[in-house]
Design a binder for these strands. Structure first.
Lengths: 125, 125
DNA sequence: AATATACATTGACAACCATCACTACGTTTG
DNA sequence: CAAACGTAGTGATGGTTGTCAATGTATATT
């Protein structure tokens, strides 16, 4: 009886039993995915990434700071988040720190999107 | 004097002047981008999306609720965020509401990633 | 050595977010 | 019509996030 109820997922009349569980929201893997998207979820960070992608090569913090209305500590804060998400690299040379995109991340994120959102139909075909 | 300081961006010796501005972090467009990524930035929402992608077709809320340790109002809350971001559709039929993926969104998001992160080198080639 | 510069860190604060218990609403069933 | 059910909305609460002012820490310049 109880077992029945368990594997019937709740009720049998709303829809067919569903492919349970997918992935576990408490796993470190998913949390890492979420963190990457969280890094992309701020307009200023998107603009910073775009700035880096447009300037081939490296950009020092002073140029980034000069491009937005935010204070320097706030820019530093955003850069830290981007760095921790693996989206940018920071190289300190002398007085300056030069930031650049981690280009492989774009591919990685797109694969991630596919992994979460791709229709199962596509994977079967 | 003061003008000089303004248009010199800060200093001229750290690196060459940089391709300014990119896109504007205060534009509605970028805020919309950020909102999409924000919708993806929660582990439970990622798991819900994965669940939807694995079950071809539609899934009613009761099945989603049954798949996670969250309370029903919390699931409803997450579904609302996903819906507002255009990631899922909700169809009420009788007592139940069936949610399904908006499949076109995957492509849209990947294009978005390219737009923000693609190396300018690649676009030139 | 003293000062200035470039950037990071800290602490504070307001705004936002995830979650829950409770309630409300519409639909279905009896 | 009344009761039960599935889902959404509300209000409260603890935690997180974006921002700034102030401070710290290297490096460079004088």
């Amino acid at each position: 009886m109880i077992n029945d109820k368990l594997h019937l997922v709740q009720s049998e009349n709303c829809c067919e039993p569903v492919a349970r569980s997918t992935f576990n929201p408490e796993s470190e893997e998913i949390k890492a995915f979420a963190a990457i998207f969280a890094a992309l979820s701020d307009p200023h960070r998107l603009a910073i990434l775009k700035l880096l992608s447009e300037s081939e090569g490296e950009v020092c913090v002073c140029d980034i700071t000069g491009s937005f209305k935010l204070g320097q500590p706030t820019i530093s804060h955003h850069l830290k988040i981007l760095k921790e998400a693996g989206l940018v690299n920071g190289d300190k040379r002398g007085k300056w720190v030069y930031y650049s995109l981690v280009h492989s991340k774009a591919t990685e994120i797109k694969e991630l999107v596919d992994r979460v959102l791709a229709a199962s139909v596509l994977s079967v075909r």
